[in-house]
Amino acid sequence: MRKIKPLIWLHAIRVRRYLLSILSGSVTDSIWMAVFLIGAYSSQGPTYAREVFWALAAWSIIANAGWMIGGWIDYLSELGLLEPLDFSGVSPVVAAASRSFVIAIPTGLSSLITLLISFQLGFNPLEISSPWLLALSLLILWTQATAYGAILASTVLLTSVPSALLDIAALAYLGLLLANYPAGNLQTFAFLPLLGPGYVARQCVSGNPPLGVFLAVTVTTIVLSLFAISYSRSVEKLVKKRAGYRAIALH
């Protein structure tokens, strides 16, 4: 906690300092969300659009986790801050992953803007069958998204591939989450990392998912988090053994 507290303080200060970047990110997300929401509403009506709204909110969590956590390694690398962090005993992956709480700002803002657009279109995404279970599934998704961000941050350290890779995951996630899936197989789909809580959130809009699916997403969350911790530790060890951090395309 002694190390985590200054990191959270750092990110809180940075949010204030770079407020325009945060607001702009929220506007960008909400325009993309509106684009897909209008398409869903005009092609398949309000019931599907309500599901799509929450699927898009889930996508926003994943996209921001990829961008804000994984992408921050690029930033640290370009500024030459990876080594100073290491010297002060802070893992660069932990420094980036502690940015997780900032995700709530662009996700919240973009969801709010998209909610207003939904009202303008004539449907209410807040008409949900299981609101508490929906909130729980998004919370679980946020935990998985943090683990996923840490895995990507470690991969950037290992491969020197820029965070463009992260956009790929967000794009793939969007396509897969919006596509129709057989609702009867939710128990199996719930085990899928990131997609599982997204599908459960969709199911909560018009139905009441069985509690067993929450057991499945919890198991996946624990496995994913443990994998993220062990993967980032081994990557950092490997990078140190390899002769340090590499800035992209400069070595």
């Binding site: 793939a172 396509g175 919006l178 596509a179």
Partner: peptide, 12 residues
């Protein structure tokens, strides 16, 4: 990336 956008368009 273009293939993933194509999938998203197909999903809509």
């Amino acid at each position: 990336r273009p293939y993933l956008v194509l999938i998203a368009l197909f999903a809509i």
